[in-house]
Design a protein around this nucleic acid. Structure first.
Lengths: 128, 128
DNA sequence: GTGGAGTTGTAAAACTTTTGTAAAAACCAC
DNA sequence: GTGGTTTTTACAAAAGTTTTACAACTCCAC
């Protein structure tokens, strides 16, 4: 097992300066430290990371990770996001953004974080 | 090729700092001490060791060692894992990991256990 | 700016599922 | 039958997930 081929844009793996997600082995590392995630936590992270940069509405997350149809009112998603952020440690703020009224977005790590600092980017994508 | 090939990666044998499994003679040693295993115990250990480092789902273990199709609900596997661990003594924790909701994994001995220390590694493999 | 409705964050409890364990029962070869 | 092995049973313990209850925050109308 030699080094890794720059897999940065491989569909099987996500990598940036601090985070490394292996979609095949279904595991993740933060600064070369293994992230111990439960199934739901991993599923949630993976879905967000696979769509890095894109806003994923709550209802989509709830559907894809939990199989919940809309209409279901629950705080489970929030609780899981919280636990994920906790495990991501200090980078969590930068990685997982909350898009008020819509959902969440995973943002790849950027050393120079001057631009989209906290900017929820064009709000609205869904009609909710 | 040629040359000594320390049996470490021979398909007929597994060896690490403390454990030695001879797949031909179907016997195992722990710190040069013979492990007295019953048939099922050996089969289970062998299957895990042959796939060292990989997670083996419960249903695969039950199929390969017991011939059970899925759908069969039994605690036999757990009982055998327990007896195996008991016989492996103090190393058992390090060797046989439980992957919650999925199965078990045999992990080769590592002197420097800094990395995956007790880390159940990313769970998840199946969707349920 | 303020206020309020609605949304998200958080901690802890409740709940569900999975795994560990001990002991007894069932098996099996001799 | 006896001794050893394997499976079942019945719980206990652990891990994971969801709910609850409320605090904190955001956005928009005014």
């Amino acid at each position: 097992m030699g080094l890794v081929q720059t897999a940065s844009n491989s569909p099987y793996r996500y990598q940036d300066a601090h985070l490394d997600v292996d979609f095949v082995r279904k595991c993740a590392l933060v600064d070369s430290h293994r992230l111990v995630l439960t199934r739901k936590e991993y599923d949630l992270l993976a879905l967000l990371v696979e769509n890095a940069g894109e806003i994923i509405p709550r209802n989509v997350l709830l559907l894809r990770v939990w199989g919940y149809s809309s209409e279901i009112r629950t705080r489970t998603l929030d609780v899981h996001v919280r636990r994920l952020r906790k495990k991501l440690g200090s980078y969590s703020e930068q990685y997982i953004e909350t898009i008020f009224g819509i959902g969440y977005r995973f943002q790849p790590f950027r050393a120079n974080q001057r631009f989209q600092t906290g900017v929820p980017t064009s709000p609205l994508a869904a009609s909710a």
